[in-house]
Computed example of a mutant assay.
Amino acid sequence: MKKIGLFILGAVAAIIAFANLGPMIGLAISLVVLYYSVKQFTKTDQTSKKVLWAVVGFIALCVAASNVPAILGLAALYILYIVYKEWKKEDNVQSPPPEDEDPFTNFEREWAELNRN
């Protein structure tokens, strides 16, 4: 039953991530432009170039702010990651060793025999 719930959650998260793929790409591009403009703004000494990079940075900030649905897409990608980890964790669960292979049971048996002699 848990696998069905994980599958449904993963499917919904995948649909949401795919639907918000455009805004996520737009957000990534605008953040790269914003980073580059801030780096260039701090490097330059001329006032005209500082004004130019400030305007470019402001426009990139506005574009990044307009891609708010990308946050939903990022959250959906994170949920997909969590579902994947839970799915894999369930597959790796091992059953307890049989009684004959349990080292503590063998130890107790051997200890009891040593105490008898």
Rank of each mutant, 00 (worst) to 15 (best):
K2C: 04
I4E: 10
G5A: 11
G10H: 06
G10A: 06
V12P: 02
A13T: 01
A14K: 02
A14H: 02
I15F: 07
A17W: 05
F18N: 05
A19T: 09
A19N: 07
G22T: 13
G22I: 09
P23H: 02
P23E: 02
G26C: 02
A28T: 12
A28V: 05
I29F: 01
S30H: 00
S30P: 03
L31Y: 00
V32T: 05
V33Y: 02
Y35W: 11
Y35S: 03
V38M: 15
V38I: 15
V38N: 13
Q40I: 06
T42D: 08
K43P: 03
K43L: 11
T44S: 09
D45P: 03
D45S: 13
Q46Y: 09
T47H: 07
T47E: 06
T47N: 06
S48M: 13
K49R: 10
K49A: 07
K50L: 15
A54E: 04
A54L: 12
V55W: 10
V56F: 11
G57R: 01
G57A: 10
G57F: 02
F58N: 02
F58H: 02
I59N: 03
I59S: 01
A60N: 03
A65M: 04
A65S: 13
S66T: 12
N67T: 00
V68W: 00
V68D: 00
V68S: 01
A70Y: 02
A70I: 01
A70G: 15
I71A: 09
L72Q: 14
G73D: 08
L74E: 08
L74F: 12
A75H: 06
A76K: 01
Y78H: 12
Y78D: 14
L80F: 04
I82P: 09
Y84M: 08
Y84F: 12
E86G: 04
W87A: 14
K89Q: 09
K89H: 06
K89F: 02
E90M: 04
N92C: 04
N92P: 04
V93N: 13
V93Y: 05
Q94F: 08
S95E: 11
P97Q: 14
P97I: 15
D100G: 05
D100V: 06
D100Q: 12
F104L: 13
T105D: 09
T105I: 13
T105A: 10
N106T: 10
R109T: 15
W111R: 14
W111P: 01
A112P: 00
A112L: 10
A112F: 10
L114C: 08
L114P: 01
N115C: 09
N115I: 05
N117K: 14
